[in-house]
């Protein structure tokens, strides 16, 4: 018996190493640059350029972080990104649930045509709208305001959000509406008391997904806002890097400030974040 088992066991161990090695190498390739960024953010140029670039800093220079908040405007950028993202999430969730209710639960002739129109919007790239949006916002004096980002971000997140809501809303049995109607609820009663409370999973998916999109967006952020006091993180980093390009420590500290909140939040709810990021794509 023992002899019979041995080769099998050996094969399994060899198999485990064979799959673990590529996985471990890729994990290292993914984590090492991030580790490198973090150690650089605590070093002075002198230390980096004198050859100690990959090991831990000899002196932990927290002043790099102090510098990017004091002279690099990072606090403002963080706040702007936070505000823009938060309002975008609120608008997208509210409008998507409302539209999805009309499309997937109410009865009217053009509902499927309207649904296809929204879904077609998923394919339209942001770039296609850039110049007209820029000119239009200029005309109505919204250029260089937070709305210049919030409104386009809302528009471009809506199609996927509506798709996600439709999926969930169609899975709610119709009898529930009927029961509520019999209890004397109007259409708004059904919407607010029955449907909205059931949409929580969709809201969390939409929030995560919209967060990542607007938090990380660069093109619109860079063109539609010029005012340093209103810039969001991505565009802010761009101007910070432009001004302090030779100061590696502070630049890396700024990059770390922009990413660490997202990474920490992600580590706490990685499963949910992953599901949200793929929710929209799988349904296409």
């Amino acid at each position: 018996m023992k002899n019979k088992n041995k080769p099998k066991k050996m094969r399994i161990t060899a198999g485990i190493t064979a799959v673990q090695i590529p996985l471990a190498i890729w994990a290292l390739l993914q984590l090492f640059p991030i580790y490198w960024l973090l150690v650089l953010s605590f070093k002075s140029n002198q230390e980096i350029f004198s050859g100690n670039s990959i090991s831990l800093p000899t002196v932990w220079r927290f002043e790099n972080y102090d510098f990017v908040f004091r002279n690099g405007n990072m606090g403002t950028y963080l706040f702007n990104s936070f505000l823009v993202t938060l309002i975008t999430i609120l608008l997208v969730s509210t409008f998507a649930i409302m539209a999805s209710f009309a499309i997937s639960r109410m009865r009217w002739r053009l509902s499927s045509a309207v649904e296809s129109m929204f879904i077609l919007g998923i394919t339209v790239p942001l770039h296609a709208a850039l110049l007209p949006t820029f000119l239009m916002l200029g005309k109505i004096d919204l250029l260089n305001t937070r709305w210049a980002l919030i409104l386009p971000y809302t528009a471009f997140s809506l199609p996927v959000a509506i798709l996600i809501c439709n999926g969930l809303m169609r899975s709610i049995p119709r009898d529930i509406d009927e029961a509520a109607f019999l209890d004397g609820c109007g259409i708004f009663g059904v919407f607010f008391r029955v449907i909205v409370p059931l949409m929580k999973p969709a809201i969390s998916t939409i929030s995560i997904f919209t967060f990542l999109h607007s938090w990380n967006e660069l093109l619109f952020a860079q063109i539609l806002i010029n005012d340093k006091a209103l810039k969001t993180l991505t565009a802010g980093i761009q101007s910070l890097v432009g001004e302090h390009s030779t100061a590696w420590g502070p630049v890396c500290a700024a990059l770390a400030v922009a990413s660490i909140p997202t990474i920490i939040a992600y580590l706490f709810m990685s499963k949910q974040v992953q599901q949200s990021m793929i929710a929209g794509s799988i349904k296409q």
Binding site: T94, F95, A99, A102, W108, A129, P132, M136, F156
Partner: peptide, 27 residues
């Protein structure tokens, strides 16, 4: 109740208006 035109328009309006203004029209 489910084909109340006014309610349909009301529910659809915000999403539709933003979609139209910032995706369809600019493109």
């Amino acid at each position: 109740l489910l084909s109340n035109k006014k309610a349909i328009v009301l529910f659809l309006f915000p999403a539709f208006a933003i979609f139209l203004t910032f995706i369809i029209v600019p493109s």
